[in-house]
């Protein structure tokens, strides 16, 4: 086991070195990509400010609190986007073009290989915006961070990230049967837009979906609300942890079944 983990880290380092070489070659491209995602967040913020220029609070949340929740939502999303972006390629075209076969011929678990192979620098646009917003909003709200809250924050970020990755693995796995599932993954992934704002503004249907069906609300609103108010720790953090673990296990199982059912697209 120890040897196995050591091997993965060594491979990780080798892949990272290759990746940095690529990064240096296409520098301008990576910078514009990160800038694009940063600007996307910026416009969303302008939208929030316009909304709050009309009302002092929204369903019991102040502007600073909303910014905190919004910023928090970008952190797990950004981390997942950074290291697990290749799953999109599996869903969209790697299998359809027959390029997926290469992962099966290598002496390394195909899922690890897909995840190790590339990083998405664009994600830094999201991640950094998220961190800046959380810090700025926490400052303005004069939030005190006890060791317990810091621990809770870390747990929420880790398992929130796993929720994203788990969902992506599940819906990328579908492509192992259907050759492509990009549109389906896109559709599911986009429901995460709902999670950036307090779930209290939604109707029952949307609330139920993003809490229990595609539990993106646990990547942002629930843990962030706990950090802000200290209420319902078990539901918020427990839910995030449980959802993260369940989705990853489901993803892994489905992926394994998909790999055994996989037939190459051929040429």
């Amino acid at each position: 086991m120890k040897q196995k983990i050591g091997r993965i880290f060594r491979l990780y380092w080798i892949f990272t070195q290759q990746f940095i070489k690529r990064l240096l070659e296409y520098r301008a491209d990576f910078i514009t990509g990160a800038l694009a995602f940063f600007l996307g967040q910026f416009f969303n913020l302008v939208f929030i400010f316009v909304i709050f220029s009309n009302v002092p609070q929204l369903e019991g949340w102040t502007l600073d609190q909303i910014i905190f929740i919004y910023g928090f939502s970008l952190i797990p999303r950004g981390i997942d986007h950074f290291y697990a972006d290749n799953l999109w390629k599996v869903a969209y075209f790697l299998i359809r073009r027959g390029e997926f076969d290469k992962y099966l011929t290598r002496p390394i678990d195909p899922l690890y290989h897909v995840l190790l192979e590339g990083f998405e620098v664009d994600a830094l646009g999201e991640l950094l915006t998220g961190i800046v917003l959380v810090v700025a909003a926490a400052n303005r709200l004069v939030l005190t961070f006890s060791p317990l809250k810091i621990l809770g924050f870390i747990v929420a970020v880790i398992f929130g990230t796993l929720i994203y990755t788990g969902i992506k693995i599940i819906f990328a796995s579908v492509a192992l049967w259907t050759k492509q599932s990009g549109s389906l993954l896109h559709l599911v992934y986009m429901t995460s837009d709902f999670a950036k704002y307090p779930v209290t503004i939604y109707n029952l249907l949307v609330k139920t979906i993003i809490t229990y069906v595609i539990p993106f609300a646990f990547t942002a609103y629930y843990p962030a609300a706990w950090l802000l108010t200290g209420e319902k720790p078990l539901f918020s953090l427990g839910g995030t942890t449980a959802a993260g673990i369940i989705l990853m296990v489901l993803g892994r199982l489905l992926w394994n079944r998909g790999i055994s059912a996989y037939e190459s697209a051929g040429s």
Binding site: F47, H186, Y197, I201
Partner: peptide, 19 residues
């Protein structure tokens, strides 16, 4: 798929404006 992805965000805006 792209269309439905886009329209989700419109629903987010709808609920925000509703509030």
């Amino acid at each position: 798929g792209f269309f439905f992805g886009q329209i989700f965000f419109t629903f987010v805006m709808f609920f925000l404006w509703r509030a």
